[in-house]
């Protein structure tokens, strides 16, 4: 591309920088609806405008991937990433850049000649490219937010708690998909090793539905724990789930199942060799 096509427009803008950034800020602030402090918008835009004009004055062309625009690209990506994390829509983010065109046009409106207009069209295309860059970064940043949230959810949802000396409890809440079942299994087994516990209670009171896949995961976890020298008890099977399990023909084999976490705890403690008081063992369901 021809070098220096924007040098004149850069000079014109530089001469009117104060008016230009004021107009730009007014346009953007209106679209953001006051959710970002004006002083912050002003600071961001002055910085962007300054970096942009400097690059243009140095003879940067149309290609926004070119070296002179490196700093500008970094600034815009930073801007759209922070907008994405604050929950702004991609439209609001891209408008921050597009509004510059309006601002330049408004300011140039008075003293525009044919030559300046031709330059403005090329300038406008450049701004479009820059705005698209923020859009791309925005989408990527959103995806990062989503995947990090999914990860956090995965960790939040699988606590392994020690309820007695040598007894762990794993209260499962929510749907048990393959990925989550894998995390649950690994975490339980690792905690068994770390704490030297020989008994684990898997409580499924909070699992809304048990299908063959979930049952398969449970069975695998129990088998793996057994291979390591620990016994699992499954508790919290609700009546409907018991019916589903039987209807699906799932065999829990010799795995101990108990109605409530309390019953499972009594069984686990008595297995550790501690005698449990009579009133505890006889407690009704």
């Amino acid at each position: 591309m021809e070098a220096g096509i924007f040098t004149r427009i850069a000079q014109l803008c530089r001469a009117r920088e104060e008016r230009l950034s004021e107009r730009w800020r007014a346009l953007v602030s209106a679209s953001l609806g006051g959710r970002v402090p004006e002083t912050q918008v002003d600071k961001e835009q002055r910085e962007i405008l300054d970096v942009l004009l400097t690059a243009l004055a140095l003879g940067a062309g149309r290609d926004i991937e070119a070296e002179p625009y490196a700093e500008l690209r970094a600034l815009l990506m930073e801007l759209s990433r922070s907008r994405a994390q604050q929950g702004f829509s991609p439209r609001e983010t891209a408008i921050s850049v597009f509004a510059l065109k309006g601002a330049v046009l408004d300011v140039f409106d008075q003293d525009g000649d044919a030559e300046a207009f031709r330059e403005f069209v090329a300038f406008s295309q450049l701004i479009d490219e820059l705005a698209l860059l923020t859009f791309e970064t925005y989408a990527r940043a959103r995806e990062e937010v989503i995947s990090s949230q999914a990860e956090q959810l995965l960790e939040l949802a699988t606590p392994v708690v020690k309820v007695w000396d040598g007894v762990l409890a794993l209260p499962l809440v929510g749907t048990l998909g393959s990925a989550r079942a894998q995390v649950v299994m690994e975490k339980l087994l690792q905690t068994l090793v770390d704490t030297g516990s020989e008994h684990a209670i898997i409580d499924i009171t909070g699992v809304p539905a048990v299908d063959t896949q979930v049952a398969q995961h449970l069975l695998k976890t129990v088998m793996a724990a057994r291979l390591m020298g620990a016994e699992c008890i499954i508790s919290g099977i609700r009546p409907q789930i018991a019916q589903t399990i039987v209807a699906l023909g799932i065999e829990f084999g010799d795995i101990a199942t108990k109605g409530t976490l309390a019953d499972a705890l009594v069984l686990a403690i008595s297995r550790t060799g501690v005698s449990v008081g009579g009133d505890l063992t006889k407690r009704g369901r």
Partner: peptide, 10 residues
């Protein structure tokens, strides 16, 4: 037996 080994065997 390590957890990873147990899972593999299962």
């Amino acid at each position: 037996m390590r957890p990873a080994v147990a899972i593999t065997l299962v």
